[in-house]
C-alpha cells in the first residue's frame, strides 16, 4: 500500500509539472490583465518544435527546449499583437490561436508521428535526499524541468509579484490600468511582455511533454492540459504556490486513474480517464465551498482581466 502511495506521488509530480509551468506563465499574463485562452495551441507548438529540433537537427534536450521557448513566445507575441496592440477581443483571439496551434502543429508534426524522441531530459537525483527510502525516488529523482516547475518558477514569480516594484506595476496594470497609466506605468508594454512570456512558458510546458513525460510526439499530445492550466489559475486565486498545489492535485488524480488502469480495477477505463477532467472541474468549485470570509481573501481575480485598455476609451 505504501509503495502504491509513493508511486502515485512520483507520477503525480511528473504529470503535474507541465501544467504547473503553463499555469504559472498564464498567471503572470493574467496579472497584467491579459487572458490567453490559446494555451492549448501554444503548448502544442512548443511540443512539436521541441520534438522536431531534437529529432531533426540537434539531439539535445536543451536545444529542443530553446526551440519550444521561441515557438511559444512567437505564439504569445502574435496573440499579444492582436489583443494588446489592436485591442481585439481576448477570448476570441485566444480561441483563434488554439486553432492555429492545433492545425499548424499537426501539419508540421505529421512526418514525426509515432517516432521516439531522440533526446530527452533525464531524471537528476538530488544528493542525499534522493537516496532517502521511499520518498527519495518520488520527490528527489525527477527531471530538471520538474524542479523548475515546482520550486524555481513559483518562487521567482512570487518574489517578482510581491517583493518588487516591477511586480506592483504588473498588478496595477491588471487591477486598474487607467490609474496605472496615470502613474506612468506602460500598461500595454507590460501586457505585451507578459503575454509573450506566458506564451514562452506554455511552450516549455509543451516541450516537457515531448522531451520528458510522454516522450514522443502525437497530434494533440497536450490532451486538454492547456485548458486545465487555465482552470488552475482560477483555482489558485492567482497565487503562484496555489497553482503549484493545483497542479499536484491534478497530477495525483491523473495517476490514480492511470494506476487503476494498470491494475485492472473493476471500473471501465474510460471512466478512469475522465478523472483528470472531472477532478479539475471539481477544483473550480473549491473556492466557493470555503467560508465567505476566507473566500474573499483568496479570490483575487485582477479586476481588469480580459478588458483591453486604451487611453481614449478610459478617459470618457
Amino acid at each position: 500500500m505504501e509503495s502504491l502511495a509513493f508511486a502515485v506521488a512520483g507520477s503525480a509530480i511528473a504529470a503535474g509539472a507541465a501544467i504547473a509551468i503553463v499555469a504559472l506563465g498564464e498567471l503572470l499574463a493574467e496579472k497584467t490583465g491579459v487572458l490567453n485562452l490559446g494555451l492549448e495551441g501554444t503548448m502544442l507548438m512548443g511540443a512539436v518544435s521541441a520534438f522536431i529540433v531534437v529529432n531533426e537537427f540537434v539531439p539535445n534536450a536543451f536545444a529542443g527546449l530553446t526551440a519550444a521557448v521561441l515557438a511559444g513566445a512567437l505564439m504569445g507575441a502574435v496573440f499579444a499583437m492582436s489583443v494588446v496592440v489592436f485591442k481585439a477581443n481576448q477570448p476570441l483571439c485566444g480561441l483563434a490561436m488554439n486553432f492555429v496551434g492545433a492545425g499548424l502543429s499537426g501539419l508540421i508534426g505529421a512526418p514525426y508521428a509515432a517516432q521516439p524522441t531522440a533526446a530527452r531530459f533525464q531524471p537528476i537525483r538530488i544528493p542525499v535526499l534522493g537516496h532517502l527510502p521511499l520518498i527519495g525516488d518520488a520527490f528527489f529523482n525527477q527531471t530538471l524541468l520538474v524542479y523548475f516547475a515546482y520550486l524555481v518558477l513559483p518562487a521567482f514569480i512570487y518574489w517578482l509579484l510581491h517583493r518588487t516594484r516591477h511586480g506592483l506595476s504588473i498588478q496595477a496594470a491588471g487591477e486598474d490600468p487607467a490609474a496605472a497609466d496615470a502613474a506612468g506605468i506602460h500598461v500595454d508594454r507590460l501586457r505585451f511582455l507578459y503575454a509573450t512570456v506566458g506564451g514562452a512558458l506554455a511552450g516549455v510546458g509543451g516541450a516537457y511533454l515531448t522531451l520528458a513525460l510522454t516522450p514522443a510526439w502525437t497530434e494533440g499530445v497536450t490532451a486538454g492540459r492547456g485548458w486545465i492550466a487555465l482552470a488552475l489559475v482560477i483555482f489558485a486565486g492567482w497565487r503562484p504556490f496555489g497553482a503549484v498545489a493545483g497542479a499536484l492535485i491534478f497530477g495525483a488524480v491523473t495517476s490514480v486513474g492511470f494506476i487503476g488502469q494498470l491494475r485492472d480495477w473493476p471500473v471501465p477505463s474510460a471512466y478512469l480517464s475522465m478523472l483528470p477532467y472531472l477532478g479539475t472541474l471539481g477544483l473550480m468549485f473549491v473556492p466557493f465551498l470555503l467560508r465567505s470570509r476566507v473566500r474573499r481573501r483568496l479570490k483575487t481575480e485582477p479586476s481588469a482581466l480580459g478588458v483591453p485598455y486604451s487611453r481614449e476609451e478610459a478617459g470618457g
Binding site: V78, F86, C93, F99, V100, A102, G103, L104, L107
Partner: peptide
Amino acid sequence: LPLNSVTAVTGVILLFAAIGEVA
C-alpha cells in the same frame, strides 16, 4: 494537402476577423 491546414486557416480567419472587428 493535410486537413490540418484548414484548421490553421480557420484560426487565422478568426484572428483577422477579431482584429477587423476593432477596425
